[in-house]
Amino acid sequence: MLLENKTVIVTGATRGIGRATALECARQGGRVVITHIGDAQGVGDAESLIKEIQTFGGQAIHVGADAAAPETGEKLVAAAVEVFGSVDVFVNNAGICPFHSFLDMPQEVYLKTINTNLTGPYFAVQAAANQMKRQGSGGSIIAISSISALVGGAMQTHYTPTKAGIHSLMQSCAIALGPYGIRCNSVMPGSIATDINKDDFSNPAKKQYMVQRTPLARLGQPEDIAGPVVFLASDMARYVTGAALLVDGGLFVNLQ
């Protein structure tokens, strides 16, 4: 029960890495605020997740809000405090990656990606940090960055800067928020089988290539990310801040 008596906000929590993270945080005793886009599909997925959490005695609520909106962070914090009384862990997971070539990148695709992956999260981190400061007991902020923060991608020229940016934000926030006992770290997943890249991995040759490039010889699963997030959220990582944890099966270091 590494997160007992901690309130955890997880953005983009109804699918993929976010869902696995919300589940594991609840299993570890955390009171979880599940966030989603707010449409009918999001509500349905959130309610299904809450029912699963309740089967093992966990506590969770859900909040619909656009991750790209600067005011979303305040909304999430207010809901967490109203129901659970605190914000102790904030996991910024929500993100999009609409693959597109660089030379004809539409402005609307670029701006939606930047706002969803970086602008909205910036102000959400700010809202969570201010609540943690008010509480006076520290906290943990974790950004789901990506191996793409470290490498390029021809169809990801709008995406990779956001993942580098959210990692850089955690580094700077670690300095800015350290005096308040607030730790800020990023997790960098490698090739994880989620909705965000299912079309890419539907190509058998591409999927096999990524598996062969990975020393552990498989694609990652969302659950592979949830454990490291729980560690960084917990008091076991009480002296870890400003760090980046690659969770990629060894993909990044394999140059062969």
Rank of each mutant, 00 (worst) to 15 (best):
T7R: 07
P106R: 04
I196N: 00
D66F: 00
I192L: 11
T72L: 10
A20Q: 14
F231W: 06
T214K: 01
P228E: 00
I9S: 02
A226S: 13
R218P: 00
T194N: 07
L2F: 08
K51H: 09
G64F: 01
G57V: 13
V32P: 15
A193E: 08
D104N: 14
R213L: 11
C184S: 04
F231N: 09
M105S: 11
P222T: 14
P161E: 01
V83D: 08
T116S: 07
A129G: 12
G153C: 09
N203Y: 12
K163R: 12
I196G: 02
V253W: 00
T113N: 11
H100K: 13
N185F: 01
L255V: 13
T194H: 04
V83Q: 13
V83N: 06
A128Y: 11
T116E: 03
L3K: 09
I147R: 02
K6P: 02
K75I: 15
P189I: 06
A94H: 04
G95E: 03
A78W: 05
E24V: 08
Y159V: 01
V229S: 02
G18L: 08
A149V: 01
P189L: 05
M236F: 12
A176T: 14
I141Q: 02
T55H: 11
L2G: 06
S140L: 04
K133M: 14
K6D: 03
G73I: 01
P70V: 14
P228L: 01
G42E: 06
Q41A: 12
R31K: 14
A67D: 08
F84Q: 04
S137F: 08
G85S: 12
P121H: 09
R238M: 11
H36M: 04
A67S: 15
G57E: 07
F231R: 09
D66L: 03
R238P: 13
N130W: 12
D195N: 09
V247D: 03
